[in-house]
Amino acid sequence: MIMLKELVGNTIDVNEEGFMTDFTQWNTQIGEALAAENDISMTPKHWEVITYIQTEYKNNVPLSIRKIGKSGVVDIKEFYTLFPNAPLKTATKIAGIPKPVSCI
């Protein structure tokens, strides 16, 4: 089910888990606001990871923890520090892309 959500003066489409369903609606202010909802204040390092994730998504590369660890952008330990509590889920939510379906 897709719902409308008001965020920093924009209306975005989200699913029942709060993931955006239309990436074209995404911008950095929205990313910042989604991060704040997940108790994360964005730093340049956070943005570096988000940009990497968005690039992989645009290239249709399925995301996994292992891939993140090999990205050269961030190691797994730091990834968990930047996005504590379900890092891949939280990071993809902030990035405005669908939740990864990988089990690893």
Partner: peptide
């Protein structure tokens, strides 16, 4: 399926 070998998997688990 992008499943890591045992040693790499252990490193991932520890880092996680």
């Amino acid at each position: 399926l992008d499943m890591p070998p045992v040693r790499e998997f252990l490193e991932i688990l520890s880092a996680s």
